[in-house]
């Protein structure tokens, strides 16, 4: 079960099973053993995750610079959020990034998975080569490479020069800087591609055989068999990629030299949060920003789950 389907199932069974005492609760449970096995996880959940979440909720209502004790200022951080033009800009940049990079990357992943499917010779080779960028894409080294490749005298412009075209500094132009990051994200389509490939393999061959016998062409088979049966996996990829893309940081940080520039054009939300929290040490404001991020990500996920009712096809 993927994380997403598992969550769906858990929610559904929690709704359905209420009231009926399960066989489990009558039997002697393994409570003690479970407590032992889960001890590290419970400690982590309390001390590293939930504790800090509560603390961050509190800090978001305070003015705190790490040196002086926090002072309660009520909703001021939150009202500041709405008046901060740089924050509005960072939201615009981040949404633009998420809404272009994620669909384009998934489309590339799906397209390539379809091309590689069904016993294509050399599949393991292609799969490995296309997957490699998604392992390296998150690294600082590749971000540095990207900065050079799209620089004023970088690789791209050297190529363009071969054709007599005078390129520009793609990363230093506010018009194009963000798109180099979108391109970097698309470049890492290998991981979702592998998930699609595995999903395609799960579709029983007999469906296609039956459809072919009935005279369905390739397009029809794709539309009526492949696509519907793949929708749960597209949905899974979409949910996780959206959540991940909202949190992108490293590439924008390195490509812009930590500034989010030029002219704040690559100022991802998380980059702005980092600057507020760990450069300006405006911890209260950063905490409020973090909660706004959680709200946005949660809302996007809920919208995704809600919208899935209209396009995701579940076999079960």
């Amino acid at each position: 079960m993927s994380v997403v389907t598992e969550l769906r199932r858990t929610a559904r069974s929690a709704r359905g099973e209420k009231g009926t005492p399960s066989r489990r609760s009558l039997r002697n449970g393994d409570g003690k053993a479970a407590a032992l096995f889960l001890l590290p996880w419970f400690l982590g959940l309390g001390l590293i995750t939930i504790g800090p979440m509560v603390a961050s909720g509190y800090l978001s209502f305070t003015d705190y610079d790490l040196l002086q004790p926090p002072t309660w200022i009520g909703l001021e951080n939150y009202t500041r959020l709405f008046e901060d033009p740089r924050l509005a800009n960072s939201l615009r940049v981040t949404f633009t990034y998420v809404f272009t990079a994620v669909p384009l990357q998934l489309a590339a992943a799906l397209g390539l998975a379809l091309m590689l499917d069904r016993g294509l010779k050399g599949l393991p080779f292609y799969r490995s080569v296309l997957y490699l960028p998604s392992l390296l894409g998150g690294s600082v080294a590749v971000a540095i490479l990207w900065r050079q490749v799209f620089g004023i005298d970088g690789l791209v412009n050297q190529f363009l020069a071969l054709f007599g075209i005078q390129g520009k500094g793609w990363v230093s132009d506010p018009e194009t800087a963000l798109w180099t990051l979108v391109l970097l994200h698309i470049w890492t389509f290998g991981a979702p591609m592998i998930i699609f490939l595995a999903g395609l393999r799960q579709i029983p061959e007999m469906y296609y055989e039956a459809a072919a016998i009935d005279g369905a062409g390739a397009v029809r088979r794709f539309r009526s068999i492949t696509l519907p049966l793949l929708t749960p996996i597209i949905f899974f990829n979409l949910v996780l990629q959206v959540i991940g893309a909202f949190q992108s940081f490293t590439q924008a940080f390195v490509v812009s030299g930590g500034t989010g520039g030029p002219a704040d054009s690559t100022m991802f939300y998380t980059l702005y949060l980092y600057q507020k929290g760990f450069t300006a040490f405006d911890m209260g404001y950063a905490s409020a920003m973090a909660w706004l991020l959680v709200l946005i990500v949660a809302a996007m996920t809920l919208i995704n789950f809600f919208a899935s009712k209209f396009w995701v096809f579940y076999d079960d």
Binding site: A34, L38, P52, M53, I243, G277, L293
Partner: peptide, 29 residues
């Protein structure tokens, strides 16, 4: 293992996978 609240804790675990690290990094710091 069979224990009380297993489903609940399992759901909590799944959700923690998707939690943005930014919401806890400031207090962690």
């Amino acid at each position: 293992l069979e224990f009380r609240g297993r489903k609940l804790w399992f759901a909590v675990m799944l959700m923690s996978i998707m939690l943005p690290i930014h919401v806890i990094i400031v207090p962690q710091y």
